[in-house]
Design a protein around this nucleic acid. Structure first.
Lengths: 333, 333
DNA sequence: TGGCGACATACAATCGATTGCACGCACACG
DNA sequence: CGTGTGCGTGCAATCGATTGTATGTCGCCA
């Protein structure tokens, strides 16, 4: 006969577990589990004893064990290009709020454009690490087909080409058209566009909206990289054009801020000599000099809608943008 | 005799597990586990068969099960006041980089100043959800004493009063003194200070550094809330003082940006009429008009150092700040 | 007083991995 | 030819929870 051997677990954590509660309350773990789950089968005095034991010890269930048994982790992973960008920050804030309210927590993966890293993070879906994936990257890592089909993946802010993924977005083309129309109504006839990087879906959509209003006679857009530096560089190129624009629609606020700086350096006054229009309405947009006229994307609501759609399994509604009028735009002289 | 009953697990996930690999390779799960762990006990042809099976199926270990058995989750939780703030964003970026390199992933909890929420998130340490906790909140939730003692908790950017917690910071008092000294050397004699909220540790440290240089004759600092709005309000109050300062040292860049705006609105030119000095060197500081002179905190390195200290269990080194000279400061006229 | 039903509680299997120990097999040596 | 040495592999316990089924208890009625 062999003695029962034990495979020693690593460094006993010593945390209170359900078994301890059971012992203190004088019941079995099953009963404790049911009591905590709110089952109506555990009542009266027994339930009271269990609750007392829980309070006394400060017990909280072990989420890892629970996750293993229930095959869900109550965690959502957000994948984004870079977290050091206030635009994403506020989306995450919304995600956090909604997730927390639903009893989920949020993992953040900043991929820095590295496909390898993206894939590694997305693998968490396989490994049981997370229940859902929110993509702010504008692309989807390989091997996520089944998960996507099961409604565990959702895109936010940017549609992903060639995928029928539920997506939380505004109508970017309409928003760009609205911005351009606004400038036109002010009396501008030469409206340039500082676009995002070529090949990007958002870039294409916003270029399309702008083009619809300015027509083919207008020159090509100048492409940037959604950064302040690239906005400044783009503006410098625009100012060198033979017929200088009187207004510039920028594909995001950061590039608009860069453009503003370049305009100032060139000795132009905004909005007297040049109108500048942004996109996103990040917090800083209200504090530039002059404050930026821009399109506001409801970023917190993006986050809320993403979680709601993910947890309910229903397709998210398309959200509305707002035109925020500030002082960086005016009629041309 | 009773038949073995099964307690049905929820919706069989159908993912490949170690057992599948074992079957395909014709060995037991223990051998697979050892092979994957890199044990030298599994060699030659057996190992080759296992590796082939893994490649063929695209198997990845289930982190939840592994976490349960090993009593560790390979996850680090970062607690911060609000994620919609570029200052924290870059710290998280650093945390992410270092964590990922060490095979850890990062959970982000934005507490919005809610103590309840902070405690709920911190509870993850008990529940096995995370292995370590990084606090950017400037305070520590209750009931973390043992964890702190075990080196699972570290503070970043802000020391936590009354706790001997390993902390990643610059010398804030020295930095404030350096900023004020810089202004004094430019020839300013009336240097005001827009401070953070009263009661905050950082506020106190920076006020102390400023005070050390300006002496007791200078008036009291004006308190703000680290936001652009509060910076603007504080500046407005300063401008109403009988002897208007010729330079203002702000406790962070956001308040400096607000101050800049208020100064402009009041018709003052910066730096000709008024010098403004910031703190942190957030990305936007280089793009204000004029660009902000400021103290740079090495935020990415904060993140790296925090992870290094957490994983190695060694106290982090104190990091160095840099004075970044830009155009918002000049000699008084 | 015996039997039946309703209700509360306990037992044990299960999630997917890790690991101490036992065991099998091959080879060598006495 | 029997036993010792050593290496590689398998068995089964374990992490902490959930849950289908069995069991126990009590009351009520005939």
């Amino acid at each position: 006969m062999t003695l029962p051997r034990k495979t020693e677990p690593p460094a006993a954590a010593g945390r209170t577990k359900m078994e301890d509660i059971a012992r203190i309350a004088g019941v079995s773990v099953s009963t404790v589990s049911r009591a905590l789950a709110g089952s109506s089968k555990v009542t009266g005095e027994t339930r009271a004893r269990i609750e007392a034991a829980v309070r006394q010890t400060g017990y909280v269930v072990n989420q890892v064990a629970q996750g293993l048994r229930l095959q869900r982790s109550r965690q959502i992973l957000v994948l984004l290009p870079t977290i050091a960008n206030p635009f994403f920050g506020e989306i995450i804030l919304g995600v956090e709020e909604a997730a927390q309210a639903a009893g989920y927590s949020v993992l953040v993966g900043s991929t820095e454009g590295d496909l390898e890293r993206e894939a590694a993070l997305a693998r968490q879906l396989h490994t049981g690490g997370v229940d859902g994936l929110i993509l702010l990257t504008g692309r989807i890592p390989d091997g996520l087909a089944d998960h996507a089909a099961r409604g565990q993946v959702i895109a936010v802010s940017e549609t992903i080409p060639g995928q029928h993924l539920p997506t939380v977005v505004i109508d970017n083309e309409e928003a760009a058209a609205a911005a351009t129309t606004y400038l036109r109504r002010l009396g501008h006839h030469n409206i340039a566009h500082i676009a995002g990087p070529e090949g990007n879906v958002l870039t294409a959509q916003r270029v399309r909206g702008w083009r619809r209003i300015v027509g083919d006679a207008a020159g090509p857009p100048v492409f940037g990289a959604f950064t302040m530096d690239s906005g400044a560089a783009a503006m410098t190129r625009l100012l060198a054009r033979p017929n200088r624009p009187t207004a510039v629609f920028c594909a995001n606020d950061e590039m608009a801020i860069g453009a503003l700086k370049a305009a100032h350096l060139a000795g132009l006054r905004v909005p007297e000599d040049l109108s500048i229009f942004g996109f996103d309405d990040i917090t800083f947009a209200a504090f530039t000099d002059p404050p930026l006229t821009t399109i506001r994307q409801p970023r917190r609501e993006f986050g809320h809608a993403a979680i709601a759609a993910l947890l309910a399994g229903t397709p998210p509604p398309r959200l509305a943008f707002t035109l925020v009028e500030r002082a960086s735009t005016a009629a041309p002289r």
